[in-house]
Design a binder for these strands. Structure first.
Lengths: 215, 215
DNA sequence: CCGGATCCTGCAGTCCGTGCAATAATGCAT
DNA sequence: ATGCATTATTGCACGGACTGCAGGATCCGG
């Protein structure tokens, strides 16, 4: 029985059983941290509680995450899957920078990976616990820097210029706004992607207020 | 001698000597925290060092700031002076929303209040210490919410709509980008205000790529 | 000058986070 | 399968962050 408290453990592609078990415990820790934090509030949850819920020692907890907040946030993710990055660098899917950035940062696959409940839980904590918000925003800044590099590459530049960074900041801001609105009212009528596109339209409207309706 | 380690103490307008002394010690704590953090790195600086440098006990430190990071960041400031807010709400100075937001958030007066060195010191820490960055970004989110409320008021709305929040996010992002570039190269040739306006132009260029040059 | 309110301070305690060294588990080659 | 090298887990000890509490000092108004 190669499992850790119910979480499937199977050797994923490269890397043996060792890596798979590590990934499983990391997931376990994050899951336990989020559940306990939602239930009791982050301050009332000790690292000892999270660790024992995941079946490891407190010392091991700190081998996986630097801080309690980081465990709630979960392991860092790439800004987008490789396929999406390749497409973006090749000028796809539309050729328009802002639209392609929205497509690049489209988080629907992350939603599928963590599950709708997990993401809802995380955003719940982001909006309720200032420390989780702080960690979340810090990670967002790192993602913004990654996006700036990708924009530079797409434009054939070796290093991101000021404009690349501003464009990246705008794109990340639009996606963040979409997330926030989706979380505030996660009805099925307006899926996450639609919220993000709505935020993009609002940004365009700010800059082109006198624009005639396009369609 | 009503002073605290060289910081002037005079009863500011309303509030007696008590309030003035409190403000003085708060400033002292932030000044000491920043100086020590720049010198030794934030992790190597203990609250005890900061407290004794400011001439108060450790326990008193925590009466002024909730965390060590908060002391480095300094006391919270209003998003803009009252006069600038009134002007913004009245549709000034230009009538164009984005331009007026840039004017509203123009931080030149904060620069004058804290002094160029203090702000440079703070940004130095923001870029070097992840914990200070996290606190800084969290405060930025609060400011963004304030700005969204102001936008709503200017448009005659009681509550900020989705568009108000997106507009506020875009404006705060532009100002943040200007700050970042100014800090990366604080030459006198390109003052802070010019950097912010440059970032605003970059945002416009993202949305209106085919625009003919205006001037 | 005095009473009430407010602030400062020390103390004890909990929890976070880290270096270190011993132990246990794993992967690999034979 | 078995022994060996590598790596993960754990306990321990420690410093530092942060919080109630209670006693004492300071300030403000009369």
């Amino acid at each position: 029985m190669h499992d850790v408290q119910g979480t499937q453990v199977r050797p994923d592609a490269a890397g043996g059983l060792r890596e798979a078990k590590k990934a499983a415990t990391r997931t376990q820790l994050t899951t336990a941290a989020r559940r306990l934090a939602v239930e009791h509030g982050l301050d009332a949850v000790t690292v000892e509680m999270i660790s024992s819920a995941a079946g490891v020692s407190v010392r091991t907890f700190f081998n996986y995450f630097e801080t309690k907040d980081a465990a709630v946030l979960g392991p860092d993710q790439a800004v987008a899957p490789d396929a999406a990055i390749s497409a973006f660098l090749a000028g796809r899917p539309t050729g328009a920078l802002l639209d392609d950035l929205v497509a690049l940062l489209d988080p629907s696959d992350q939603l599928a990976r963590e599950g709708r409940d997990g993401v809802q839980q995380l955003f719940d904590l982001v909006s309720r616990e200032p420390r989780v918000l702080a960690a979340f925003l810090t990670r967002g800044m790192a993602h913004e820097a990654d996006v700036a590099r990708l924009v530079a590459l797409r434009l054939g530049l070796a290093e991101p210029t000021t404009a690349c960074r501003t464009v990246a900041a705008a794109a990340v801001t639009v996606v963040r706004r979409g997330y926030a609105e989706w979380f505030a009212d996660p009805g099925p009528a307006a899926p996450l992607r639609a919220r993000i596109e709505q935020a993009a339209r609002e940004l365009v409207a700010l800059v082109r207020p006198a624009d005639p309706p396009a369609d």
